[in-house]
Structure formats: structure tokens, C-alpha cells
Design a protein around this nucleic acid. Structure first.
Lengths: 116, 116
DNA sequence: TGAATATATGAGCAACTATTCATATGTTAA
DNA sequence: TTAACATATGAATAGTTGCTCATATATTCA
């Protein structure tokens, strides 16, 4: 009724060992959510822009050749994931990376790509 | 006709500086694709299983509480991204991580999560 | 105050994705 | 050879996502 798996291989010892070391379901979910945010070319472009310095929305839009609206939508996603922060100066909003982890994670991926 | 952007702020110097340092379009695409593979809870669970040791499909399925089919489909995605490799032993297929980068990238994300 | 500018946001749509279900392929053992 | 098992895979579907378009909000300046 509940066991569909017919597998008779079952390396019980390994299963037990791995089970104890697995991060919590919630942690795994959060990590996947973080990577999901990284998993879009437009957002990666935005993040790259911000490696150099803070930047306003319309400059980002011009630089990556996207509409203001698209950039604004994606900045919202990055903001919700706490990957970027912003400050307002009059009608201009300057975005910047919220910490160095973003760049570290990016560079790790870059290394991986380049070694393939 | 081609310039929709009305922005008059334009920090030309910054735009130029960032433009020269931006990775190639293709590189950014590849990085986003890599993160996209990481950006799914099921795949993250599978990857976690493989930190400890190689493992066969049905053990993974049991461990993460997913169907054999779902695991097999996701292993294919991981395989295409060259994140896992496999060896066959009779009718059993053992999967393992193809290099340590996967674990490093995972741990970076974990650190980031835990500092929030 | 009103016009211009910078950004944000909601709705709608097209494209993509993860799962399930059914079935195919490949391997072992009786 | 046949049955049982381990894995792979194609099709269908439900859910998600990123973009565009239109418009709202906020700020500055004349």
C-alpha cells in the first residue's frame, strides 16, 4: 500500500549513514531557492554589474541591454533574496551587493565552468 | 526609434568601466545554467546524498523519498551538467559527484544562508 | 502646480520545468 | 527462455517564471 519501491539492493548501512548527515529539509529548500535566484542570465548580468560599484537602475538597464521594467522586476527578486541592498538619492535608486558571498559564489561557479 | 531609455542620469564613466570588466555573454549564460541545475530541492537532495559516497538510484530514491522515475530524470539533468558521473555494476547504476567543486559551491551557499 | 524623469508594480502571456504514469531497455538468475 | 528487478525515457500535465505593456508612485524643477 505504501511501499512502491521493489528495490532489493538497499545498502542499508550507507542509507543510514547518509541519513544522519543530511541537512534539514528546510535548509535544502533555502539553498535551492538561493541558487534559483542565481539561475537566470539577466540576474547574473545585474550581479556582475554590481561587482564594480553601486549602480542605478537605468544605468544597469543600459549596460545589460534590458528594459527598465525587466531590470526593476529582477532587482526585486535579488532584493527579496537579500543579495542586493539599495539607497535612494532623490529619484535615483542605487543598488549594490549586500555582501561578498555573492561574488564568492559567482567565482566558484566561474571556476567550475572554466575547468570543464 | 531604437533608444527607448530616457534616463538622463547616466554615469558614463562607471558604465564604461563596468562594460570592460563584464564576463562574456556566453560565460554568464553558462554560469546561470549551472546555478539553474542547483536551483531545485530534489537535485540538491541528490547531491547531498552523494557527498558521503556513491549511491545507486533506488537507494537515493528511498533516502530522499522520491520515486525512482523522478530521481532518474533529475540524475539525467545532473549528468548533462557534468556534476555527477556513474558506473554500472550489473543492473545497478552507482552515481557519484564528478568533482569537489559541487561540494564547495554547496557549502558556500550554506554559509550564506546561515548568516542571514 | 504641472511637466518631466526614475523607479516600481500588476496583469497577461509564452516558455520552461518537475513530476507522474506507462512503458522500454538491459541485466541476472532460475 | 522467462520472470524479476534496476534503471531510463517519452508524453502529458500542472505549476512556475520572466518578459512586456500599461500604469502607478515618487521626486525634482521650472
Amino acid at each position: 500500500m505504501e511501499e512502491e519501491i521493489k528495490c532489493t539492493v538497499k545498502h542499508e548501512d550507507i542509507i543510514e549513514k547518509v541519513k544522519t548527515k543530511m541537512p534539514k529539509e528546510e535548509t535544502l529548500f533555502d539553498i535551492a531557492e538561493l541558487f534559483k535566484v542565481f539561475g537566470d542570465t539577466t540576474r547574473m548580468k545585474i550581479v556582475c554589474c554590481l561587482f564594480e560599484s553601486e549602480m542605478c537602475v537605468c544605468d544597469i538597464a543600459e549596460l545589460i541591454n534590458a528594459t527598465q521594467s525587466a531590470v526593476s522586476h529582477q532587482l526585486r527578486v535579488l532584493k527579496q533574496a537579500k543579495l542586493v541592498k539599495y539607497r535612494k538619492e532623490g529619484k535615483v535608486v542605487y543598488y549594490s551587493l549586500s555582501d561578498r558571498h555573492v561574488e564568492i559564489i559567482f567565482n566558484m561557479a566561474l571556476e567550475h565552468i572554466q575547468e570543464m
